[in-house]
């Protein structure tokens, strides 16, 4: 963890997407507490007004950080959801406050924790990128761009079979 502090610049170059910070409320060192990687959204059919977003969030600060709300200029409502399958029944529950502990790397992926984008504002969906905003309990706001990925969602089961380096237990 301490290692990450000292080498944040190095770490940042290795990350897919680096996050913008709000200067006036930034931490002492000008360091953003959360780093967002691999932010994407599976492309939905044109007239479906709901979409899901996924990303990995890493807390590189020494204190817990909570994502308290989300928004997007493209959707009327955005929230973090968790898909659950309990006793053979599938449901989604809203996660009001998502806490990311110091050093934690939390992966949102299909079939579990996801960003739920509800009720699209425009007639057509963007085929390239989707902007969202994450509001944090420390007052910071993070702008994230979800890359829209065309093609069907891959089966996590197949991924598990073909890629043994990946573990599916994150966020459960």
């Amino acid at each position: 963890m301490r290692f990450y502090f000292g080498s944040s610049a190095l770490l940042a170059t290795a990350l897919w997407i680096v996050v913008a910070s709000v200067p006036s409320l930034a931490m002492d060192s000008g360091q953003q507490a959360l780093v967002i990687e691999d932010a994407w959204s599976p492309q939905m059919p044109p007239n479906v007004s709901m979409a899901a977003g996924y990303l990995t969030v890493v807390n590189i600060s020494a204190v817990p950080v909570t994502i308290t709300s989300l928004s997007s200029p493209a959707y009327h409502a955005v929230a973090i959801h968790r898909s659950l399958i309990e006793n053979g029944v599938a449901s989604m529950v809203k996660v009001k406050d998502l806490v990311i502990n110091p050093g934690q790397r939390l992966k949102l992926s299909p079939g579990g924790l996801h960003i739920m984008l509800m009720n699209r504002k425009s007639k057509s969906a963007s085929t390239e990128s989707l902007p969202i905003e994450l509001k944090l309990d420390d007052g910071n706001v993070i702008d994230v761009t979800l890359n829209v990925i065309p093609g069907r969602v891959q089966s996590p089961q197949t991924e598990q079979v073909t890629d043994h380096s990946k573990h599916m237990h994150h966020g459960s």
Binding site: V48, A51, H81, S83, A90, M92, P110, H114, V153, P156
Partner: peptide
Amino acid sequence: PDVCPVTLA
């Protein structure tokens, strides 16, 4: 958008 596409896949 989340669990149904996964189940279909």
